[in-house]
Amino acid sequence: MNSHQYRAMRDLVLSMDDALPGKFEVTKEGIVHDRAAGVGRHELTTLVVRKRLEHVMPEAIVAHTGKPDVEDETEGIMRRPDVMVIAETDMEGEGAFDPRTLIAAIEVVSRSNPDNDWVSKVRDYPLIGVPVYAIFDPRTATGAVLTDIHPTPDGPRYAARKDFVYGEDVTIGDWTISTDDLPRYRD
């Protein structure tokens, strides 16, 4: 995709923000719509993970939820992680966050589009320089933390993956939190 196409998709996504339910993002493949973002157990999981992280992190580091997006225009990618671990000072300024300032991106897998979290973001986050990507999956009560970006013929990828099941402690960056009693999706 060229920069003109990317900017057109980005402008479309930004114009739909708050006008339609769910979350829209721009990926290498185009626009992705997560219809269930921000509802029920997804949002509760996001809240619990954010609070547990902020309890163990230094005050200058935050587990931010919400806007703005993280964007790398040269790669044609604009994402909005459920939780962004970032230094407060890196939040200053206008517009999207530079993804290279994130300490970690955390996603709670949505029921409506799990491949977005398990496939597309596993590809996109190392490509835009996010050093740690943690996935919490309320469908299966499992997750993974991906780290150690390294070059491959297909572009940067995470070299290390640590899987976990709910009930185990999980380390994201320099901080370890419990996954006890995280919400699960009901059938």
Rank of each mutant, 00 (worst) to 15 (best):
residue 6 Y to F: 02
residue 46 T to W: 08
residue 125 Y to P: 08
residue 62 V to I: 03
residue 147 T to S: 05
residue 112 S to C: 14
residue 144 A to D: 10
residue 181 D to G: 13
residue 170 V to R: 08
residue 175 W to T: 02
residue 98 D to W: 05
residue 4 H to K: 12
residue 128 I to F: 00
residue 61 I to L: 06
residue 64 H to G: 15
residue 119 V to C: 03
residue 53 L to Q: 03
residue 180 D to I: 06
residue 153 P to C: 10
residue 82 D to I: 05
residue 92 E to R: 04
residue 15 S to R: 06
residue 27 T to L: 01
residue 53 L to A: 02
residue 133 Y to A: 07
residue 50 R to G: 10
residue 41 R to Y: 08
residue 72 D to I: 00
residue 65 T to V: 01
residue 50 R to M: 08
residue 138 P to N: 07
residue 177 I to T: 04
residue 13 V to Q: 02
residue 118 W to P: 11
residue 185 Y to F: 07
residue 57 M to R: 07
residue 101 T to V: 03
residue 98 D to C: 00
residue 184 R to S: 06
residue 152 T to W: 13
residue 100 R to E: 14
residue 79 R to H: 08
residue 109 V to S: 13
residue 141 A to K: 09
residue 87 A to V: 06
residue 9 M to G: 14
residue 58 P to F: 04
residue 77 I to F: 05
residue 10 R to S: 15
residue 13 V to F: 02
residue 148 D to K: 01
residue 52 R to A: 10
residue 19 A to C: 07
residue 182 L to I: 10
residue 128 I to D: 03
residue 173 G to F: 06
residue 45 T to I: 13
residue 92 E to M: 00
residue 167 G to P: 03
residue 176 T to H: 09
residue 124 D to I: 00
residue 155 G to W: 01
residue 103 I to W: 10
residue 89 T to D: 15
residue 89 T to P: 13
residue 127 L to S: 05
residue 80 R to N: 10
residue 108 V to E: 11
residue 118 W to L: 13
residue 176 T to S: 09
residue 169 D to Q: 01
residue 39 V to S: 15
residue 44 L to A: 08
residue 137 D to C: 05
residue 11 D to H: 09
residue 82 D to N: 04
residue 150 H to M: 13
residue 121 K to Q: 03
residue 43 E to L: 01
residue 126 P to S: 04
residue 71 E to S: 05
residue 177 I to N: 00
residue 4 H to V: 05
residue 38 G to Q: 01
residue 133 Y to H: 11
residue 16 M to R: 15
residue 176 T to L: 03
residue 46 T to E: 04
residue 101 T to K: 01
residue 21 P to A: 07
residue 70 V to Y: 04
residue 75 E to V: 06
residue 130 V to G: 14
residue 154 D to E: 14
residue 172 I to V: 10
residue 59 E to N: 08
residue 134 A to G: 15
residue 153 P to L: 04
residue 28 K to D: 15
residue 171 T to L: 06
residue 66 G to E: 00
residue 50 R to S: 14
residue 13 V to E: 06
residue 103 I to N: 10
residue 119 V to N: 05
residue 37 A to I: 00
residue 21 P to H: 05
residue 23 K to F: 07
residue 148 D to G: 04
residue 161 R to P: 12
residue 83 V to K: 10
residue 48 V to K: 04
residue 88 E to V: 11
residue 115 D to W: 09
residue 178 S to M: 02
residue 115 D to N: 05
residue 50 R to F: 05
residue 182 L to S: 11
residue 176 T to F: 07
residue 181 D to M: 01
residue 18 D to Y: 00
residue 145 V to A: 07
residue 53 L to Y: 01
residue 99 P to C: 13
residue 48 V to P: 11
residue 35 R to G: 14
residue 102 L to I: 12
residue 21 P to R: 07
residue 43 E to G: 11
residue 125 Y to S: 12
residue 87 A to T: 12
residue 19 A to S: 02
residue 89 T to K: 13
residue 96 A to E: 15
residue 90 D to F: 08
residue 104 A to L: 04
residue 114 P to M: 02
residue 148 D to Q: 02
residue 65 T to W: 05
